[in-house]
Design a protein around this nucleic acid. Sequence first.
DNA 1: TCACTCATGTGATCAGTGATAACATCAGCT
DNA 2: AGCTGATGTTATCACTGATCACATGAGTGA
Lengths: 216, 216
Amino acid sequence: MSDNEPKHTDEDRGSYHHGDLRRALLDAMGAVVTREGIDAVSLRGLARMVGVAPSAAFRHFRDKRALVTAYSCEAINELVVTARAKRDAVEGDAVRFEAIILAFIGFAREQPQRFRALNRRELVDIEDLDWLQAGLAMDQLVFETLNRPDADANPRLQAARNLLAWAAVHGLVTLAMDGWISDADPDDPLGAPEISDAYRLLVALVSQGRGADVRF
Amino acid sequence: MSDNEPKHTDEDRGSYHHGDLRRALLDAMGAVVTREGIDAVSLRGLARMVGVAPSAAFRHFRDKRALVTAYSCEAINELVVTARAKRDAVEGDAVRFEAIILAFIGFAREQPQRFRALNRRELVDIEDLDWLQAGLAMDQLVFETLNRPDADANPRLQAARNLLAWAAVHGLVTLAMDGWISDADPDDPLGAPEISDAYRLLVALVSQGRGADVRF
DNA sequence: TCACTCATGTGATCAGTGATAACATCAGCT
DNA sequence: AGCTGATGTTATCACTGATCACATGAGTGA
């Protein structure tokens, strides 16, 4: 073969030395995060996986924080895209609201380590423009779905409902993911009947402004 | 002075070499956590603060995880004690419920780094007996307060309400603490009017089973 | 075609980390 | 008095993030 590669043995290949080391590092990081969580990520480990010297990573990321930020960015964007798609696939305010919630819960349940990494705000560079933009997109998605026109509601009450809904979903997901409540029931869509009950109550509250008349 | 101490210069003093190195390490850790967060804690750093060789710490803690576990234990126990005291200082189910919630929110707002450390479940040894017991005490406190006798309520609905309340409070606190929502308003008891609104809505929901008729 | 340049990767090295082992020391008991 | 065990020290290891000088090769312009 005429293209005698350097010492790399992996499936890199591309134009330059490595091809796209930045991508390769992010992909390797994805694998590590999925397998062992974001705290197990090390620059040297990623470099080893990709077959490159540790210092090479610093050509593409100023420091580890920048790497984590870029990873977080991509994860947020993916979450936003899939959530928006699921929301836009259905009609009706209440259903769309529910679709968004379920998209978040689904993401958290399918890729717990990835979702958990998203919320480790202290690990990212909160000045990073890409990251800020991704966060903005997520906020916008959430609020454009929650803040639906609701003629006869007091706007302040409506805001309170939305924040409470956001917090409750976040809390349910976080508590389950961190092991404070079990969500291992395979028969239940949300992992446990109690969680599903709480979720239904929440939906009823936000959709109808009431909760007492939910039937179980 | 007849008690010629070893080379320590600090305010240790006690019976043996150091006095109570275990305590001193935990106290030093408390200082670091409060100032810079739990991720900034290093065994060597603590040993340096206390004026002792790094390896000395391993005489009192099997590894770093054990140290963090012990710290978490003490923090949980303190939270439980103060929350229970605040709850028992008032009368009436609804008021006691609110007192517990406010105790948790207060702890989180007054000692954010400490509270955040509490929730880093992946950092502790979840087999540790002391830690398990502390967690049990907290669960018990929460549930003995939330699960008040409520004759005419469907138990499943009641459980859903309680879980939703727990999750919502946890979510509000977490979101605020992690900077997803601002809670820096000095005029508001919970840090921001939106948070207070959401909190009032939650209390109304859980206390009365409704939310639509809250006045703002 | 040739030389220049800049992006990319290498190797050596640094300080800091958790952890372990061999050694030293002191308290308290017999 | 002397033994023993708890406690602390010193030395060392493998690992981490980070930085430096240096090498190499892709692409460009003359």
